[in-house]
Nucleic acid binder design. Structure first.
Lengths: 211, 211, 211, 211
DNA sequence: AATGAATGAGACTTCATTCAT
DNA sequence: AATGAATGAAGTCTCATTCAT
């Protein structure tokens, strides 16, 4: 970012531009956007755009950053997360785990379907984006959540490779969902996918080898 | 494809162009390639390129097609596949399944790491490619393989949602691997990922709910 | 036209581009022009061209439009037209008609010879241009003029097929002139053609069958 | 033309290429044709095309030449022409003239509408073609025909400017017809145009000033 | 003679970025 | 600070013509 938006005016401008970028991405796809489109959508001139952002990529980066924070925030507000944060004892047994996994996956689907597919488009193009921060946030969040469970139930024999499991699960779930939504002809219901993913994840997290 | 390469000469040209496309993709990324680059890499003129392909996209499509066939071929040559095709009885029990899953995942990693990351780059950009055929091939292959196992072991109570499981597994495994390889700072070994994925997949396929 | 040239600067640019197009057409022929040529002639970059016009055709269209208006304006300023517009009584008898027809044909020749043959080149290529508007303007003008005469002299028995006569005359005169000018080796003088055309037109308009 | 087609094979090839050119022109328009299209339509290779013609323009030139001869031939076969050639006395008075003019104009319309608009397209593009020869042929023909009439009827006072009149008439008639056919929305019938043109021409040829 | 693969100059158009006002 | 006109490099694709076989 070229300038630190200290003044109110500037922050408004920056926000407007980021939001315009979001709109353009949903409407034109990540590589359909142009600086003119974004400026026009934001109701400002291209010149102003370059006053606040070094180049087109910085804009997208800022958008991704913003969304990452939004997601982190939304995650933190999930019931289970708040409970965990509050030090509450998680629902015991596999049933509780399954329930929470299920909720998170539903949350993921809701996210990917929200904002007119903005997240979907961004996840699709994650490889040309600085998505790492987002994934980090997600993984960290899941990690925190999982740790609570495992500290609780298997504290005697802690899982060594938790970070590996989290990595695998996060990516498996996320990209399976994205691929599913992207499918034109859906040969299976979202509910089936949700249940399947839940099954897989719970099995993996609580499986024999986990102990 | 604009012309049916009947003559020997033509097929060479087509192959050279596709191979040049492959090279350019690995060197410049999928959306860094240009028709001139490809032609130059193939050692011919742009005109020749358009003599054999309608446009740039057709070239990429041809490349994807070719690779899809290569992969299908390679899969068919995997020991377990040949045995299955030969009607051989699969190794019994979970151990046999685990072993095969492990082998397939290793095969996948080998594939993604081969060709200087060509596959990696293509999978990354699957959303802007006619990847469906490839995924179809892969899923079909896995489906065939899985069926053998399940017909064998659970023929009394066949798995209703096999296609859902295959979809989930194929995407989970593939994109987790891609994400792993794409990670600049690897915090875990490929072996850990391989074992983790194997664990997850086997658990999912042979879990309680599968019966 | 891509942008409404509201600002002074814009209108200058648009005019410069249209004028450059005119120059290129006279120098290179209608299908010898290129966007780069035009931009260069106008002293701007190709990009600017596309800032104001959708494509090459739009430019030519704008040129034709502009010229059409110029011609219409010039016609309106012809003595006979002003008189007619003012409701003045046209010179009586065939002599008056002949005189006016003669003047219009001379005007036509002057037009086709002006601007370094710009009009000539455009009329030659009328079939690939939106020339309809121009012809409409011309025909309408002639129609108006003619009507005055005929209302005056033959009001008892108005000419039923006036529009047919105008169509025939307009095209006959215009293309005969164009063909004449295009002839490399002129075997007859422009004056002879002018008189011949006048003769033919007057004869046709005031002939027996006209009554 | 690069080679004189002495052998039978060659002449066939040349004819096939010219005919293919004709077909392409009617189907694609004069500036839609490509050498490949023509060669393919003729059922030969591009190379062969260049064996017999220097370049694309030579091909079109040959086509125009061929058509010019066909037209000349067709004209010569018109009843009035045969009679004139046979030294027969033309039908006396204006009635005979009118009748013949009418027939020629109908012949012209038939020609322009024949061959799927081939002639139409060529006349439209006369300016980029070596049409002069054709016009010469037509004018000469008309000149011959007219001369018979005028020698007969006005031999005492021969028309000085016959060539001017012929030039004017030929172009007037031809381009008025072309323009008429080209009109998408026909606001008048072909018959009206034919009669109008006849009227004009006859009036011009037999008018006061002609004597 | 015939073929048709190969050539490559050149046309059109886009769009990130700059800079004078 | 804001504007938006101007830039021009770069990319895609066409097609007349040549030349090795």
């Amino acid at each position: 970012m070229r300038k630190k938006p200290k003044q109110k005016r500037s922050r408004q401008m920056v926000d407007a531009l980021i939001e315009a970028t979001a709109k353009c991405v949903t409407e034109l796809g990540l590589d359909g956007i142009t600086t003119h489109h974004i400026a026009e959508t934001a109701g400002v001139s291209v010149g102003s755009l370059y006053q606040y952002f070094d180049d087109k990529d910085s804009l997208v980066e800022a958008l991704v950053d913003k969304l990452a924070n939004e997601i982190a925030e939304a995650l933190r507000r999930l019931p289970m997360m708040e409970q965990a944060a509050a030090g509450a004892e998680p629902a015991g047994g596999t049933a509780g785990l399954r329930n929470n996994v299920h909720l998170i996956i539903q949350f993921g689907f809701a996210l990917l379907n929200s904002r007119d597919g903005l997240y979907l488009e961004l996840v699709r193009n994650w490889h040309s984006l600085p998505t790492d921060r987002v994934m980090d946030i997600l993984q960290q969040t899941f990690m925190d959540l999982s740790r609570v469970y495992f500290l609780k139930h298997y504290q005697n024999t802690p899982i060594e490779d938790l970070h590996v499991r989290i990595f695998i699960i996060a990516n498996s779930v996320m990209f399976t969902m994205v691929r599913y939504i992207g499918q034109p002809r859906m040969m299976m219901s979202q509910d089936e996918i949700t249940r399947g993913l839940t099954e897989m994840v719970v099995g993996y997290l609580s499986g024999e080898a986990a102990r």
